[in-house]
Design a protein around this nucleic acid. Structure first.
Length: 976
RNA sequence: GCCCGGGUGGUGAAAUGGUAGACACGAGGGACUUAAAAUCCCUUGGCCCGCAAGGGCUGUGCGGGUUCAAGUCCCGCCCCGGGUACCA
């Protein structure tokens, strides 16, 4: 009987649902294993073949672990708040919840088709009030917490208040209580604290809360009407939509992730994550060690951060960021106009310009001088836009002899440059090397850089002019969005002071609004809602960002229906951390950092007993699409300036669009002539336009054509292509084909995306080949972590394999498996496969396990083996990869229960032992012949027998070998 | 610039320092068939010698090195992909 994948897969999908095969109980008698996929945002485009790659890999591991006796949690859900649904809502008025519902249904259908072992009874959706109730609850816990740097953990804010009431905040406390990371809060005594009014107390506490409302520099995107996180801004424009983004200071809900910078860094060491991912996080956190130095200005001071306090004697000026609060204060009256003009122009320059136009040095002198802490010299204070407000203190001590940026600035403005290191040629540039010797006068002279740094810090501390300090690049995370489709922030305002909504009021549900747009006076959409207040006090109108729900969702799967807690302590104690997390590397510095942050926070406050969410993480590579590119040509007239040089082109309107087959492309050297000739060939005659040939040119563009219009040989279906083109443009088209009439496209490997018309839908593959074939083929493509192009043609190989495997159970169309004892050779095939597949799954090397299945099937086919003792274990090990066919064969083998519960078969080394080994005999490392010897033979015996061999003798030509190397069961190498 | 990956046939790829190219696609040839589909068999890195059996040379981005032996280890380059950046 033929392998009918459609019937089999349909049957088992229904059967699994009916039997609840993939239901998981919190059964604490069994060891647990938690396999998690990064849950998807359900977009309107549906899944393409790239999306399930990681899910298939994790599904194989989940099923494998289940066979090995683990109780496996393998859930799936949706990150269902997000911008596209909201954009769609703005355009169509359709409520985003509705669009989301439709998209989720489509995702579910597609996922079901692939045969995953997800326990859907545990599904979560971040936009579901029963889920976001707990996202809001965690937010309130963060609002209700501060970071105690002394104990290095988050604590309830009530304990901070108790501290203030008894001891106030003085001396060392101030920096310890704030974590010395962000804010500087003035000292006060217990007495003073008690005398503060309610508003003042709340304002002080804002400086300590882990979720706080503070003034922050934000990436404001006017087009989207919202604030974006750093990782949502790419090259100065919004990642979604590409709108310009500007820096703006505004009140903003933020998360004090900076308090966790050191722990986020340290925690990486113990994680089984890829080095590139860990490095990305390390760079993002950006720890640098150095010193803070105070330069006094009158009776005030400027604080700078430097990693090179050893170069202090080389300081010749100070540069403030244009946004620095002290700029206005230190500008002398005679310079005020100039400075203000500069600050204004600098802030008009976008972040992007300031980044890219490195050569454009700009700055202005404030008129003030600071005092050098060691020499007492007067140091001019400048303003320069090469200094960033958001890093360190927003001010630098400029050492043009030791820092190239300072050197450029000094050279441009003629400021003094002092050599700081021995042998440096400061006329050409700064010496930034760190293995140099300091040459400046004073106590640092002659010291190596590391020693000089230590000494400089000591001296600074002695003078009370500075201290050793660690600085992080990591910023606090912006947490408010001026958006509708997100979790409402459970905060209300009394006298403009934010207060936590009582937990009993949760979930604070998203209100109905008439439009999903900001109000006329620029308030977020929630401000449109009627009665958006709590007991008459206005509620917060911004909503949470996309990463809120995904920062803790892994905990909800453990106990998804719990109404009294985000998850019960029993469930958390049982399931613990994620054992294997699979997802894309694009989340390296976004989701994966916040995910770790919230986990550490929940741990600090005693809600969970571990402080890292995922022990092991694997990034699946991207499945790229193959795009079909077509060349199009268009005739243009060149315009010339007075001197006859070409200075522009203008299109010639009205001629047909011309597409040229790939092999008819023109040579680079005479493109112009060729292009125009091609156009002439297509009937676009330049002579009709009364301009000489030399004045014509053409434009050549590459367009994406739908990949499904391409035949396997790469020829375009010209008729369908032309009718497809008509959709966008009614102008006539001409196709210039190859001499044989075919039209060839150029194949380009790029990201799979709707806009590139190269998307391959898994549903189409499944209806033709089946889900099992799709699963196997996705794994067979190559190593999981690598990116690789999708090539539907290759799928035939895995499809053929499944048919051959199926046929092992059939003889002349009748199911036929014998109970005869297998031969040694048959057992060897079986156990070699068990060994290889088991080891490969452990290494997540799935492409090689699929190869092994193919090898085994080919070999058993040759041996004509139809024996139960060989085939039955093979069905079990194939089941994680191809569950439907395995389940069907398992049933046919006479089992009433599901194959998913079958015990994983163990391989037995005894069957793999060889009697003899065929040694490659090499001369000077080059293999020349093979000689077979029994395994038991000693090195000496092998050597003697090899040398006695006539062919070896004839190759030696009577000479004695210099050396003979025998590696048992590997190789013999004769050195002559 | 810096930090991670990665460069092996026409293609996707495999290879604890030990026979490079397993497995698969594609291509070519053949069998079966009225034909097609399906299936099966053979060949398939390049170059060369040979009627053939077979044999030789060469080959894992480039140049060096270590080793009896290097795709694999070391040093110096080149190229591609990803991340990051006036980070003080």
């Amino acid at each position: 009987m033929a392998y009918e994948h459609k019937d089999i897969e349909q049957k088992w999908r229904t059967e699994w649902a009916k039997r609840g095969t993939y239901r998981v109980e919190n059964d604490t008698t069994k060891p647990k294993y938690y396999v998690l996929d990064m849950f998807p945002y359900p977009s309107g485009a549906g899944l393409h073949v790239g999306h399930p790659l990681g899910y298939i890999a994790s599904d194989i591991v989940a099923r494998y672990k289940r066979h090995c006796g683990f109780n496996v949690l393998h859930p799936m859900g949706y990150d269902s708040f997000g911008l596209p649904a909201e954009q769609y809502a703005i355009q169509t008025g359709q409520h985003p919840a509705k669009t989301t519902e439709v998209n989720v249904a489509r995702y579910r259908e597609q996922l079901d088709n692939i045969g995953f072992s997800f326990d859907w009874s545990r599904e979560v959706r971040t936009s579901d009030p029963s889920f976001y109730k707990w996202t809001q609850w965690i937010f309130l816990q963060l609002f209700d917490s501060w970071y105690d740097a002394k104990q290095d953990k988050a604590r309830p804010i009530s304990e901070l208040i108790a501290h203030f009431e008894t001891k106030g905040a003085e001396g060392q406390d101030v920096s310890i209580l704030t974590g010395d990371v962000e804010e500087f809060v003035g000292s006060f005594s217990a007495q003073e604290w008690k005398s503060f009014d309610e508003r003042t107390k709340q304002m002080v506490l804002q400086h300590f809360r882990l979720a706080y409302l503070g003034d922050a520099w934000v990436n404001w995107c006017p087009a989207l009407g919202t604030v974006l996180a750093n990782d949502e801004v790419k090259d100065g424009v919004s990642e979604r939509g590409g709108h310009p983004v500007e820096r703006k200071r505004m009140p903003q809900w933020s998360m004090r992730i900076t308090a966790y910078a050191q722990r986020l860094l340290d925690g990486l060491d113990a994680l089984d994550w890829s080095t590139s991912l860990k490095e990305a996080q390390r760079n993002w956190i950006g720890k640098s060690e150095g010193a803070s130095v105070r330069f006094t200005v009158g009776n005030d001071f400027i604080e700078v951060f430097t990693t090179r306090p050893d170069t202090l004697f080389g300081v010749t000026f100070i540069t403030l960021a244009p946004e620095h609060v002290l700029v206005g204060k230190y500008t002398t009256d005679d310079r005020r106009a100039e400075v203000e003009a500069y600050v204004k122009s600098a802030s008009n320059r976008s972040e992007r310009e300031r980044q890219t136009e490195v050569d454009k040095v700009s700055g202005v002198f404030t008129g003030s001088y600071a005092k050098h802490p060691f020499t007492g010299a007067e140091i001019p204070v400048w303003v320069g836009d090469y200094v960033l407000a958001g890093y360190g203190t927003g001010a630098v001590m400029a050492v043009p002899g030791g820092d190239q940026r300072d050197w450029r600035f000094a050279s441009h403005f003629g400021l003094p440059i002092i050599a700081v290191t021995e042998g440096a040629d400061i006329t050409k540039g700064a010496d930034e090397s760190k293995d140099a010797t300091i040459c400046s006068e004073g106590f640092l002279k002659g010291l190596k850089v590391p020693d000089a740094i230590r000494r400089a810090v000591q001296e600074l501390e002695k003078l009370n002019a500075g201290a050793g300090r660690i600085n992080f690049r990591l910023r606090d995370a912006a947490f408010g969005r001026q958006r509708y489709w997100g979790e409402p922030i459970p905060i209300y305002y009394k006298d403009n002071v934010p207060y936590a909504l009582p937990v009993s009021e949760l979930p604070l549900k998203l209100p109905e609004v008439d439009k999903f747009l900001p109000t006329e006076d620029g308030e977020p959409p929630l401000a449109r809602a009627a009665n958006w207040n709590y007991q008459g006090h206005p509620l917060e109108t911004t909503t949470m960002p996309g990463w809120a729900g995904s920062s803790w969702y892994f905990l909800r799967y453990m106990d998804p229906k719990n109404e009294g807690r985000f998850a019960s302590p029993e469930a958390i104690n049982y399931w613990q951390q994620v054992d294997l997390y699979v997802g894309g590397s694009e989340h390296a510095t976004g989701h994966l950092l916040y995910f770790r942050f919230w986990t550490k926070f929940l741990h600090d406050r005693g809600w969970i007993n571990f402080d890292e969410p995922a022990k092991k993480l694997v990034n699946q590579g991207m499945v790229q699409g193959v795009s079909a590119m077509v060349h199009s040509l268009r005739l243009v007239v060149q315009t010339r300036d007075a001197a006859g040089r070409v200075n522009g082109i203008s299109p010639v309107n009205g001629h047909p669009r011309v597409f040229v087959s790939a092999n008819k492309k023109f040579k680079d050297d005479s493109q112009n002539v060729h292009g125009i000739d091609r156009l002439l060939e297509a009937g676009v005659d330049y002579r009709e336009y009364g301009v000489s040939k030399e004045d014509f040119a053409f434009t050549s563009d590459l367009h994406n054509a739908p990949i499904e219009l391409l035949s396997e040989q790469g020829a375009l279906d010209q008729e369908r292509f032309l009718s497809w083109l008509k959709h966008g443009d009614d102008s006539p088209c001409v196709l210039l084909t190859e001499p044989d009439g075919t039209f060839l496209c150029q194949a380009v490997v790029e990201k799979m995306s709707k806009s590139k018309f190269n998307v391959v839908n898994p549903d189409d593959i499944i209806s033709k080949y089946g889900a099992d074939t799709l699963r196997l083929y996705e794994m067979f493509l190559g190593p999981l972590e690598q990116s690789k192009p999708w090539d539907t043609n290759g799928i035939e190989g895995t499809f053929r394999f499944l048919r051959k495997f199926w046929n092992l159970f059939y003889e002349s169309d009748v199911f036929s498996v014998s109970d005869e004892a297998p031969t040694k050779a048959e057992f060897k095939v079986l156990h070699a496969t068990l060994k290889k597949v088991t080891e490969d799954i452990e290494k997540m090397s799935f492409n090689t396990s699929v190869s092994q299945f193919m090898i085994a099937t080919n070999q058993l086919g040759e041996l004509n083996c139809h024996k139960r003792d060989v085939l039955e274990p093979l069905v079990v090990v194939l089941a994680p990869f191809a569950p439907h066919i395995a389940e069907e064969l398992w049933e046919k083998l006479g089992h009433a229960d599901s194959v998913t519960g079958a015990k994983w078969p163990q391989w037995d080394a005894h069957y793999l032992v060889e009697d003899s080994f065929s040694y490659p005999i090499s001369f000077n490392g080059k293999t020349r012949l093979q000689l077979e010897f029994p395994i038991g033979l000693s090195k000496e015996e092998v050597e003697a027998q090899v040398l006695a061999n006539p062919e070896v003798q004839s190759r030696l030509e009577g000479k004695a070998p210099k050396k003979v190397i025998v590696v048992p069961k590997r190789i013999v190498n004769i050195v002559v």
